[in-house]
Design a protein around this nucleic acid. Structure first.
Lengths: 346, 346
DNA sequence: CGTCCCTGTGAAAGCGCTGTCACAACGGCA
DNA sequence: TGCCGTTGTGACAGCGCTTTCACAGGGACG
C-alpha cells in the first residue's frame, strides 16, 4: 500500500480511504490512487485490514459433506450472495465424528470469520453451548435450535402433507422408510417421521410400528431388505413414504425388478425433489435447499451488520407435494377381494 | 493471547511458542499455557499470525459451480486433506462470465491465500497471465496448461477407449453427442471429441461430421432434439457416445419413450460414471474426481512448502471403461438386412 | 476583514501476533 | 573456581493496514 501511496503521491491514509470508497477523497486524488493501484496490481490484504477492524470479511460454513445434492444446491446460492457482499466463504467439511470432536475442541473458526453457518448437524447441548460463546453470530441451517437464529424447511408439515396425499388416494397401510447413518441429517429424519405420524393420527389411522423401517442410504441392497420386511408383513403396505428421494428410487428399482408394478400395486412417495426424482418421475415432497442457502446468507449478513440488536429470527421455508407418476389411488388388495368373495358366499 | 500469557504467568512469546508446538518450551510451562488457553477458550487469530509470517494458512479454490457431482466429489476429498494439514479452504464460485471478469480484475485471492486451485475453466491467455503474477502457486485442475502445475484426467485416452469399446462390439456408425454451454467444462469436451476421432481414425472408420451433434446438458428436451437429428440421418448410428452421463441418460430416457430398445437397437455409452450411471445401469467411461481433488490438494501443499524449487508437475489420472447394460454387440441394421436381401435376389 | 466551519489530507498509534535478540540459569569441563 | 555452551524465557520491533487526531486551506458569514 505504501508503494501505491508513493506512486500516487499521497499518504497511505488516503490510499486506504480511496480503496474503501470513503467519500472524503477528492475526485482527482481518487483517480490518481486508483490508477496507481491498478498499475501495481494491488489488492488490500484482508489479514492486515481485519487485524485493525476486527472484521474478517469471511463467513464460515460447517457442513457434513460437500458431495450431496443438498449441500451443493445450498452452497451454490449462498456463495454468489456472499461474494456480492464482498465476503469470502470459508468451508469446514466435517464428515465424521473424530473430525467433529476436533473441530469443536479447537473451534478454528473463532476469530477467523464474522459469522458461522452450521448446516444440518445434530448438535449436542454442549456443542451448542460452545458455539454460543464463539463471539460471533451462529446461524443454524436446516435445523432449528430454540433461541438461536435458524433457517429450515418445515419437515413436519412436509411429511404431514405427503402422508395426507397418500391418505387422500385411499391408502391406509402406509409404510415409512427412515434413513439411518446419514451423519448430520438425522434432525430432518425425526421431524419427517413425526409429520407422518401426525397425518395418520389426524386421519384416525392407527400407528403400526411394523410399518416404520430403517434403511441406509445409497444402497440398493439395503433398500431391498427394507422392502422385503414390508412385503412379508401379514398386512403389507399399499404405499411407501421414503424419507429421501434416493431411498424411494432404490425401492422403486427393487420393486420393478420384482415385477411389482408402481404405482398400480404400491405407491411410492419420496422427499426432497432432487434431480433423481425427476429422472424417475417420482412423486415427492419438494424442498428448496437453494432457497435455504440464500435465506441463511441474507440472515448472516444482517446479523453481521447489526450485531448489537438481539436477533432471534427463525426462517421457516415451505415444502410442496409434487405428485408425479409413482403415486396413485389405492387398488383393491388381494386380501380384500378374498374377503369380499368369502363374505358373499356363505 | 495477552490474557493467556497473564493467566499462565508467562510472556506472550512463550504462549506463541507453545501454541505452535515449538520444542523450546519446558513441559511444565507448556502444560500451564495449554491449560490457560483451554480455560480462556483461546484460538490464535490467523489474521494476525499471517500478517507477520506472510503465510495465510488458506488455500483458495476457484470453481465454476458447487452444485455438481463432479465438484462435490472433488471438494469432498480436497477439504479433509487440507484440514488435516491445518489449512483453511476458501471457495470462490464463479458461475457466469460477469463474475469471472470481476474476479480476474480484482483477484481477491491475492495475498489472501497461499495457493490457488483453478478447477475446470477455459482460461484465456490473458487470464492465465494474470494468475501467473499472482505471487502464489496456481494449480490447474481438470485441465492442463503447459508449463504450469496441472492435475487432470486423460480425457483423450478415456474417449479413445470408450470409442474402441464400441468399435470392438462391431459398431461402425458411432455418434458423438457433445455438451455445450456447461460453462467451465468445455476443455474436457474438446479432448473427448478428439479421443473419439482418434479411435475412429485408427480403426479406419471415416469421420462423419453428421454423427457429431451438440446438446445442452440437463434437458430431456434438448436430448430429444439431438436424438431426432441422429435418427433421421440417411444412415443412423448404431451406437451413441455421450460426452457426459447425464446426456447419455437423457438419450436413453428418450429412446425408451420411443420404444427403441437399448442396447438391442442402439448402444449408449456415457462418460463420468456419476451415481446416475449406476441407477440407469449405463455403460460409461469412469473418472474419479475425488482422486483428482486429492492429488490437487497434495500438490498444493507440496508447492506451498517448497515454493523455491520450480515445480512444473503434471499429474495425469486414468479413466476406465465400465461396461454395463447399455452397450451391446451391434445388431444387423434394417438397412443391411434390406441390402443383403436385395443382393441375394437379383 | 476577521472569524468560523467545512473539506481534504497526513502523521502516528496500534490491532494481535511472530521472530529476533538478549539474557538468566544451569551444568559440564578445564 | 572460572568459563563456556545449552536451554528456556522475555522484551521489543514490526508485519500492513485502519482510524483518530491535528491541521492547512478555502469559502461563508457577520
Amino acid at each position: 500500500m505504501a508503494d501505491v501511496a508513493e506512486r500516487a503521491g499521497v499518504s497511505t491514509s488516503t490510499v486506504s480511504r480511496t480503496l474503501r470508497g470513503l467519500s472524503t477523497v477528492s475526485p482527482e486524488v481518487r483517480a490518481r490512487v486508483e490508477k496507481a493501484a491498478r498499475e501495481l496490481n494491488f489488492a488490500v490484504s484482508r489479514q492486515a485490514a481485519s487485524l485493525v477492524t476486527g472484521r474478517t470479511g469471511t463467513v464460515a460454513v460447517l457442513v457434513p459433506t460437500l458431495n450431496s445434492w443438498f449441500m451443493g444446491s445450498a452452497l451454490s446460492s449462498l456463495a454468489p450472495l456472499l461474494r456480492a457482499a464482498g465476503m469470502q466463504l470459508n468451508v469446514y467439511e466435517i464428515p465424521d465424528m473424530a473430525e467433529r470432536t476436533s473441530f469443536f475442541e479447537h473451534l478454528p473458526a473463532r476469530r477467523n470469520a464474522d459469522a458461522l453457518l452450521v448446516f444440518s448437524f445434530d448438535l449436542t447441548d454442549e456443542e451448542t453451548a460452545r458455539l454460543d460463546d464463539l463471539g460471533m453470530p451462529v446461524i443454524y441451517v436446516s435445523q432449528h435450535v430454540d433461541g438461536r437464529p435458524s433457517v429450515y424447511v418445515d419437515d413436519v408439515a412436509g411429511a404431514l402433507h405427503g402422508t395426507r396425499h397418500l391418505l387422500n388416494l385411499g391408502h391406509r397401510r402406509i409404510a415409512f422408510v427412515q434413513t439411518v447413518g446419514a451423519s448430520g441429517f438425522s434432525f430432518s429424519s425425526n421431524e419427517r417421521l413425526l409429520g407422518y405420524q401426525q397425518a395418520l393420527t389426524e386421519a384416525g389411522v392407527p400407528l403400526d410400528a411394523e410399518l416404520v423401517v430403517s434403511t441406509s442410504v445409497g444402497s440398493k441392497r439395503a433398500a431391498a431388505e427394507s422392502l422385503g420386511t414390508l412385503l412379508s408383513l401379514r398386512e403389507p403396505p399399499t404405499a411407501i413414504f421414503a424419507e429421501q428421494d434416493e431411498v424411494a428410487v432404490a425401492l422403486i428399482w427393487n420393486l420393478r425388478k420384482t415385477q411389482i408394478p408402481v404405482p398400480d400395486r404400491i405407491s411410492v412417495l419420496g422427499f426432497d425433489d432432487q434431480p433423481l426424482a425427476d429422472w424417475f418421475d417420482l412423486s415427492t415432497v419438494a424442498q428448496s435447499p437453494s432457497d435455504m442457502g440464500r435465506e441463511a446468507g441474507e440472515l448472516a449478513l444482517k446479523l453481521i451488520d447489526d450485531s448489537g440488536t438481539e436477533h432471534e429470527r427463525h426462517v421457516v421455508l415451505p415444502s410442496y407435494v409434487i405428485p408425479r407418476s409413482t403415486t396413485a389411488p389405492v387398488a383393491p388388495a388381494r386380501g380384500e377381494e378374498d374377503r369380499e368373495k368369502g363374505a358373499s358366499s356363505p
